[in-house]
């Protein structure tokens, strides 16, 4: 019982950035806890993916036609089987859609503890101490967990750059679990990003609105500012869930990841799920009447001015120049 198992996420062709962060974290933990860094990759064809996993000492490959497309049930079977077979001390899963499916499910199936929302992990003896962002990022919980255990890690917590090389890269091909023959769910189809007319992921400037905008009718204020700035309009999840802006403008965990030079967060509190989608932005300016909002922790500049006063004022200043 040793080592750190990383669940590798992919779209079947490319390894997801979160997985490199996990490999980087796994290397740090493995140095303290001992054992290998193992990467579990399950797909219909792992060929295109394996080459990217040089940070792992061993690459556990599971291939099966039943693993074409991401299916929570199938992936959980594979992960559970791998945990049972490899008996890692630590299992790392990204806190992504897949992480939401798999971390707690696999932990429950194997009887392991699970800690979610992790932004920091370190070994203390045979335990793992984790920091987790709770309550929308307003509080951080520090936990001590005996190993073996499963952790789901928030994107942006570890350096992705450290997760590309440094392992032995041994490939171990494992037989698919028998359960894949009796799946009770199926993938009917997928739609890629960019289905809509806009692509905010490439925008240099993003004006992003959150719940604080109050209603669909007020979006106009932000739209006018975005136009004056030459920016794209983004939104936090609640704004999209409320139908005030379309899905293609959503920034964050289940939306887009943006890397603009300027990110103007308007009425956004800064839940971890949102920060995940914009942590690589250049200049971040936040407008929120709640001075304690977590967004101010990641912003470069902030103000508690009422957005209804401030937005038109900025627009007015930009208009004559623009």
């Amino acid at each position: 019982m040793a080592g750190v198992l990383v669940y590798v996420e992919s779209d079947g062709e490319r390894v997801a950035p979160i997985s490199f962060e996990l490999l980087a974290a796994a290397r740090e933990l493995a140095q303290s806890l001992g054992g290998d860094v193992e990467a579990l990759v399950a797909a219909a064809d792992t060929g295109p993916l394996v080459g990217e996993l040089g940070a792992a000492d061993t690459i556990l490959e599971v291939t099966s036609p039943a693993l074409a497309g991401y299916l929570p049930e199938a992936q959980q079977l594979v992960l559970v089987e791998a945990i049972r077979a490899r008996k890692p001390a630590v299992v790392l899963v990204g806190y992504t859609s897949a992480g939401l499916d798999l971390a707690a499910g696999a932990a429950t199936a194997t009887g392991l503890p699970v800690v979610a929302y992790c932004t920091g992990l370190r070994a203390e003896g045979s335990d793992v101490v984790a920091d987790s962002q709770l309550y929308g990022g307003k509080l951080v919980a520090t936990t001590t967990t005996s190993t073996p255990a499963v952790f789901s890690v928030v994107a942006g917590s570890f350096a992705e750059a450290n997760g590309h090389a440094g392992g032995r890269g041994e490939r171990i091909v494992t037989a698919p679990p028998a359960g894949l023959a009796q799946l009770r769910s199926r993938v009917l189809g997928t739609t890629g990003a960019g289905g809509g007319a806009v692509d905010i992921t490439k925008a240099e400037r993003v004006v992003s609105v959150g719940r604080g905008i109050g209603g669909a009718d007020n979006i106009e204020l932000a739209e006018e500012l975005a136009t004056a700035m030459g920016a794209e309009l983004g939104a936090s999840r609640p704004v999209v869930d409320s139908g005030w802006l379309p899905k293609e403008r959503q920034v964050g965990k289940s939306g887009m990841t943006v890397k603009p030079k300027l990110y103007l967060a308007v009425g956004i509190s800064g839940a971890p799920e949102h920060l995940e989608g914009m942590h690589d932005a250049g200049l971040v300016i936040a407008i929120n009447t709640d001075g304690d909002a977590p967004i101010f922790k990641v912003a470069d500049y902030g103000t508690t001015c009422d957005l209804f006063d401030l937005l038109p004022a900025i627009t007015a200043l930009l208009k004559p120049a623009g």
Binding site: A141, A286, K297
Partner: peptide, 21 residues
């Protein structure tokens, strides 16, 4: 749970935004 919360606290200040008044 196999896991114990040892501390719950506001996230460390530090970087944070420069506030415009």
């Amino acid at each position: 749970l196999g896991s114990t919360v040892t501390r719950l606290a506001a996230p460390p200040q530090g970087q944070g935004a420069q506030m415009l008044e």
